[in-house]
Design a protein around this nucleic acid. Sequence first.
DNA 1: CAAAACTTGACTATTTTAGTCGGGTATATA
DNA 2: TATATACCCGACTAAAATAGTCAAGTTTTG
Lengths: 140, 140
Amino acid sequence: MKLNTKSRYAVMALADMAVFSTSKAVSLRDISLRQGISLLYLEQIFLKLKKNNIVKSIRGINGGYILSKSPKDIKISEVLLALDQKVKTIGCKKDSKKSCNGKSSKCITHNFWDELDLHINSFFESKKLSDLLKNKESRI
Amino acid sequence: MKLNTKSRYAVMALADMAVFSTSKAVSLRDISLRQGISLLYLEQIFLKLKKNNIVKSIRGINGGYILSKSPKDIKISEVLLALDQKVKTIGCKKDSKKSCNGKSSKCITHNFWDELDLHINSFFESKKLSDLLKNKESRI
DNA sequence: CAAAACTTGACTATTTTAGTCGGGTATATA
DNA sequence: TATATACCCGACTAAAATAGTCAAGTTTTG
Ligand code: FES
Ligand code: FES
């Protein structure tokens, strides 16, 4: 029951950007150094973030990435979606008629996992990148 | 972001038992047939459920397993715990001083994952085996 | 005693994960 | 205009986790 490292690093890198600079481009090299994430891995991650319009890139010397939107408008769910990190605790294919064990009707636990997925997804929907920045004290 | 099949099958098998018989022993063979789960795999799963006192075994012919408690007293969190399925979306070791990226202090996202873990675990804490049995209609 | 059913540890093929590598392209600035 | 910096992108791979299987039992009832 884990998120993959790509998703975790994506969130971490975006949080780093939000803390460090919302206006100037931030280079992956800097993020890599500050957060201790492999530069090569970050490149892979940011490619997806860019495709999903969460960041914009600026090429060339002094280039880097900037957030496409304000941190308070970036939902964590968007970020996870960009990394293909689906929350799918359910065993069966969502659309298919087949159940998770090959039978023809939905299994006895199907609705439960569905409910769980909803519960988790609503958490990610409700959280914004900006929520990560305010620390303990700001949470009432 | 998935549970492993062992956990899913464990919940499914227990739900099957709860539906089918709360008094008489249910053989794994029957569960296997009804739910379409490999018998050999079920054996492995029930060993753990037994060790964690969620089911009791009755050996010999006509033997099988019975639930140790009433379905409304079996929390899903117990079941997952029995299968070593921890909800740990966090990257670092919970107790260690090291952060997920090898730095000495907690990373910028640590509290967020912590909150997520709590959110998911409280779901599993709140749900009982009996909750799986009542279908759609019973949920207001 | 024989068959049904639980007990247990070890073993393995497959899949997923967590990256790395190589070879680009664009652009600011000296 | 050379060059260094930084993004771009697909392909590749070692290692770990997963999902099961297998073998060889033991216990109990009919
Ligand atoms: S989880 Fe959908 S049929 Fe079992
Ligand atoms: S998740 Fe705990 S330090 Fe990063």
